[in-house]
Design a protein around this nucleic acid. Structure first.
Lengths: 152, 152
DNA sequence: GACAAGTAATTGCCTATGCAACTATACTGG
DNA sequence: CCAGTATAGTTGCATAGGCAATTACTTGTC
């Protein structure tokens, strides 16, 4: 009647779900990152930053907001933005009301590159997402991920 | 009638879904990795390897299977297994029928540590998954992720 | 207004990991 | 059986990223 130990949790349904999430994410990001690198010579992290900047209401974010948005440490974000700035895709701007803060702003060149990357992204999504999930399934998935992702 | 450019895809529903997947994964793995490190002094990658080994039918996997299972390069996997072996959690075993191949096998010590890590994992899942998704929602999510994750 | 505590960003240092080159072994067709 | 090709794993090298310490600024308290 009794299982190996604490009811053998390695086959628990939630353990499997967590593993599946990691796995799905790893495979999709990996294959998309590869395609993005091949077609646009752009690392996935750059794409994430540029996308977050475009989505931001003011079209700009502060360093710590970038870090939060892409789930990086602030230290890592500093260097990531260094690289993006060196590539001319973003610029740092001082904040007039708080001299500690720095805004990250996308440049025209950054916008062009993001548009290009988004075209590649749409093709990728067509192949890897639209072909596997219907529109209803996609919105169901989005809803579930949102719930799972809720801050406490 | 016409949008900014290719129909402004940065707000496309699928783009958002992809971003949400990255984000959810990043937040959950980060917070779980932190907890695992605090409570078991075990990196998330070690946990993934040990879990995959326990799930494997024979209780062992070859190097390339480990790499595939955890979505790492083979080079990265070599060194990851180096570290796990140095910590005494797995051992490498020669394959009698193919002298190129190497089996990775979990040790008793590895099993003990994995059990401990699984307890921490279950607590984590209780807090972060069970509290946000019902059982039905979890299985719906698993189904959707599986479809999305399907190899072509 | 001065001091303590809090916050934003950067930096030093370290580790993990990817890619490509390499070695060793296995398979395949003549 | 040999040559050529494919496969398994490891290594050199380079880079991205985390953590903790640091600097600079701000806010709150008296």
């Amino acid at each position: 009647m009794e299982q190996v130990s604490t009811a053998c949790p390695s086959s628990d349904e939630r353990v499997a779900l967590f593993a599946l999430l990691l796995d799905t994410n790893a495979r999709l990001s990996r294959s998309f990152a590869l395609r993005l690198e091949e077609n646009c010579a752009m690392p996935l992290a750059w794409f994430e930053v540029l996308l977050q900047l475009r989505r931001a209401p003011e079209g700009r974010l502060r360093m710590n907001q970038v870090a939060e948005a892409i789930v990086h440490s602030t230290g890592g974000t500093t260097r990531l933005i260094d690289r993006l700035e060196r590539a001319g895709l973003v610029v740092r701007e001082l904040c007039p009301t708080d001299r500690r803060a720095i805004y990250v702003v996308i440049t025209p060149r950054g916008n062009v590159q993001l548009d290009e990357a988004l075209r590649v992204h749409m093709d990728y999504l067509e192949e890897h997402v639209s072909s596997r999930l219907t529109c209803d399934e996609r919105s169901a998935l989005a809803g579930l991920l949102s719930k799972l992702n809720e801050a406490r």
